[in-house]
Write a protein that binds this DNA or RNA. Structure first.
Lengths: 263, 263
DNA sequence: CTGCTTTGTTCCTATTATCGGAACACAGTT
DNA sequence: AACTGTGTTCCGATAATAGGAACAAAGCAG
């Protein structure tokens, strides 16, 4: 809506990818005149959202963006309440523990705790993952009406991430129905090869699904009853978090079809 | 420099304080017309930097700000290299461990690990602290020329945070000389009552001070030789981190007077 | 050393996007 | 029902922005 503001944010978006960029480099990428980018950079620098890299030539994300972004976790009690549960999963149960929310067409990881196990699964706090291949995505999408799910997932075939990734809407909706019945979702090497994950939704006091917990372990590490065990731990954690957010125990069972958000 | 972009960032800054605000509320705070704020909010929302609160009326920081802000830690190896050292401090040595950088007239905490000890010291990742009262501030300022220190600290008397806070430039510079001699700094209940902290700088491959480690413990928890022990641990951690960043062992001893950054 | 290229940065004015008061729709209160 | 708050939309005068061109400095190849 506001061109200048939008361009400034576009610059920030670009730098948010992680690497340092020069003014003309950014200009080329965004297809803008260097002088425009220069002005945006200056404005962003003045407010600390962008800063010069060590070399003094290129620019990168600034400390203010870090501070402001951090405050995202402070809204509500979600993060604070979930952290102890995630820690337990990671430390006691040796499960990689994640907290995520549905934003746009992705899951955004609010927290990602790595267990001390042998294999490191590399999803970090702040990163995002696709919806059709993760337990996160299934469990969060299951809350929405079918038409909306299709709209969010977009055109088929969905991106194939592993041989086991489900790439058609039919396959996916089949599983969504299962998720709605059982109250949890699994991803059996559909997102990352060799990784098995389970997820369950977290509800707030109004009964709406606001986030999701997920636990992931190396596939080969699972014993015979390992899957049931993993699902049990994840569902239990999600329920305890929901209860501490004020969700009524009864509400945690029902599958709310109301929209999570609009946009 | 760019008015619109600056105003959009001002809105983000305001929301970054943590609470949800309405359009007119923001307009009043920033002394702008509601329609301007509305346009900025729309732009910020489109890009995910701002989102509607659960109520649907007010606005808050969005997930994109979180993601972009997170990428601040990915620059260089500083955070990744420091984390294990901080963990050791927190878990093995029962010390609250912090990693901070000098930005503007404050220390910004890149990491804040709480030890499992009895007393929780509440400085969180992303928060900031004053320079004149913390070990962080002393050790980072000691790298700069005297005139610049005075400029950054601003007008006397400095804000009194505890009875032991040093509030005059003379007192402070006295201590800075001591810091330059010993290579580390302490804050004896100068920032928070009952808290004793020690800090040491981290240098990168070029020998420049880029950050600082600090360890804090409850004052009464210190034994007779506790202070020496704390300082030793902190200095050791800072040196190991510096070495892993490529700093030459010799460079870690010298007190660089070169400017850390301009602005 | 010199010319070529690329960088960040500044200048300037036609143009265009922004400003912001006023008006609207809705919600909660009195 | 009148009032006061909210978020949101409209639109013409106006002021801020756009962006090509020019500059200084740095890096590199010949």
């Amino acid at each position: 809506m506001s061109q200048s503001a939008d361009r400034a944010l576009a610059v920030l978006d670009l730098l948010g990818a992680g690497q340092e960029l020069g003014v003309r480099e950014i200009a080329r990428e965004l297809d803008l005149a260097a002088s425009i980018v220069q002005r945006m950079i200056n404005t962003l620098c003045d407010r600390g959202y962008v800063e010069r890299g060590p070399g003094g030539q290129k620019y990168r994300v600034g400390y203010r963006a870090f501070q402001v972004g951090r405050s995202y976790l402070a809204h509500g009690d979600l993060h604070a309440v979930s952290l102890p549960e995630l820690r337990t999963m990671a430390e006691r149960d040796q499960i990689n523990a994640y907290l995520g929310v549905l934003r746009g067409a992705s899951v955004v990881y609010l927290e990602a705790l790595q267990s001390k196990g042998p294999i490191a699964i590399t999803s970090t706090q702040g990163s995002s993952a696709s919806l059709h291949s993760t337990a996160f995505g299934k469990v969060l999408l299951a809350e929405l009406p079918d038409t909306e799910i299709a709209a969010i997932l977009g055109s088929e075939p969905f991106q194939r991430l592993t041989p086991k990734t489900k790439t058609t809407l039919d396959e996916f909706m089949e599983e969504i129905r299962e998720v709605r019945r059982t109250g949890y979702a699994v991803s059996d090497e559909e997102n990352i090869e060799g990784v098995f994950a389970a997820g369950a939704v977290i509800r707030d006091a109004s009964g709406q699904a606001v986030a999701s917990v997920s636990g992931a372990v190396p596939r080969h590490q699972l014993h015979s009853d390992g899957i049931d065990n993993l699902c049990h731990i994840v569902v239990g954690a999600a329920q305890r978090i929901s209860r501490r957010l004020g969700a009524a125990p009864a509400a945690m069972l029902r599958t709310s079809r109301s929209a999570l958000q609009s946009s």
